[in-house]
Each structure stands twice: as C-alpha cells, then as structure tokens.
Amino acid sequence: MSAIFTLSILQSALELGCIYSLVALALFISFSILNIADLSTDGCFTLGCAVGAMVTLSGHPYLALFAAMGAGICSGFITAFLQTRMGVPSILAGIIVNTGLYTVNIAVMGFSSNVNLFASDTIFSLAKDKVQASWYDSWYKLLIVLAIVLVIGILLSWFLNTRLGLSIRATGDNEHMVRASSINPLFMITVGLCVANALTALSGAILGQYQKSCDINLGTGMVTIALASLIIGETIIGKGGMFQRVIGVILGSCLYRFIVALALRLNVPAEALKLVSAIIVAIAISFPYLKEKSRFYKMRSNNPGINRKEENTNVSH
C-alpha cells in the first residue's frame, strides 16, 4: 500500500477532498434535502473562484472568501427566483443560470479566460508565515482547509436543526405538510439554494487560492464530482443525525479524492479522469440498488426447490 500511496499523495488528496467537500455539502442541501438537482453548480463554482481571485489580486485574501460567498448567494437567488417565481422547472433554471454565468465569469476575470495569483498573498501564504516549524511547513494547507470545513460543517448541522433548517428539510420531504404548517415552501427553496450556492462559491474561492490560479473551465463537471462525493458519503455513513450526515459527506469527498489519486497512480491518463469520475458516480449511485438486488438473487438461490419448479415449467413450454 505504501508503494501506491505516498504521504504526499495522501496529503494532497485530503486537502482537495476537504476543499471540494464544500461543493458536496452544497449538493447535500440542494439534492439530498431539497430534492432539487441544481445544475448551476458548475458555473457557480467558477464564479466563486473568479470573484475570489479578483479580490485576492487586489490584496484582500480573507475578504475574497466572503465576496465569493456573496456572489454565490446572488447566483443561488437567481436560480431560486426562476423556479419559484417565474415557473421555470428546476433543472432548466439551473442550466439557464449556468449558461449565463459563463459570460459573467469571463467578465469578472476582466474578459480573460484565466487569472493567476502567483504574486499575491493568499490565506495559505499568510498562514504559512505565522508559525515557524518544520512539520507546520508541510501540513499548514491541510490544517487551514480542515479548519474551514469543520467550522462550515458544524455551522451547517446547527443551521439544519434550527426552525428555519427544519422548515427547509420538510420542504424537500413533504411539501403538502409544509404548506399545511404555515411555512412558505418557495421561501424555503430560496434560502436553501442561497446557502448551497454560497458553499459552492466558497469552495471555488479556496481552490483558487490553493492552486493560485483561476480558469474559466475550472467548474466543468463539478456537479458530477460533488454528486459522487455526496453519494459515497451517504452510502458509507447512511442515515443518522444531521452532524453525522455532514461528516459523512466530507469523508465521502476525501474518499473520492483517494480513488482519483489511486487512478492516477495506476497510470490512468489525466484526460481520462472525467470518464473515471463518471464511472465512479454511476457505480456509487447504483450500489445500494445492486446490493438489494444481489440479496434477492441470493435468497432465490437458497430456495432451490422453487427455482427447479420454474425451470420445469419453462421446459414444458
């Protein structure tokens, strides 16, 4: 195993896993809780990265994170507005916003398709100078992203247990009941999508500072990757309290990065990574169904008497 996974590979998989887990948490809100497939995720991720990069370039790496979240909230609000007030089906609303965001993102980056931050201070470079220790030099990035993700995870599970959070969860679970309980489902969808997109954009902003660059195509396929992480997380942790599920999603995201790192180690060419992601998602989503099905086949083969009867009738036909 050590031959396949070196410490640095493990470390970067964890770092990326934590950063991308914010997008998985966003889909946890929109897909798992609200039951809406938010296809604006790709564009919103790039939006967060672009806004974050521009603010970082101007010398405010911390402010960049909040600016990105604000941009994400705006994007989420527009997606929600289209589906709650304009009667656009939710999938279409996401696609429309995603398409529009491409132009917005290019414009944010000053009509250029990429921006680099090599000369700017980032949250990582600022934190690196804070402590002088040899172990810190190699682990500070992981520490920062881990801290951010844990804080977000705790805040999110707290939020989902407040009355507002409960109302959002009920909206995705049983809209009939929500309307009969004097809760406005349209408002809950709007709040949920704003929070989700804020997380997506935050993830983009952190990634931009992490890799010191932003590219217009950064977000392509993000929704698939996040979905894979989410489903891996929900499969391994299963149902439980909100905090447990949030932790599951974060673990799922890290696990997904391990699988990708493994694929890269096995000399899968980088161009094939999207295909690998798609295959992982397909397997992860179908896994619970196949498990149930294999249980059925096992049960049937344990009852040979019934099987034989079936075969006999088949023969007689």
Partner: peptide
C-alpha cells in the same frame, strides 16, 4: 396518512 408528516424527519 403519508401527506400530513415528513417521513425522514
């Protein structure tokens, strides 16, 4: 009876 309550909560 399924309409009045949220099953996963």
């Amino acid at each position: 009876p399924l309409k009045g309550t949220a099953p996963h909560m």
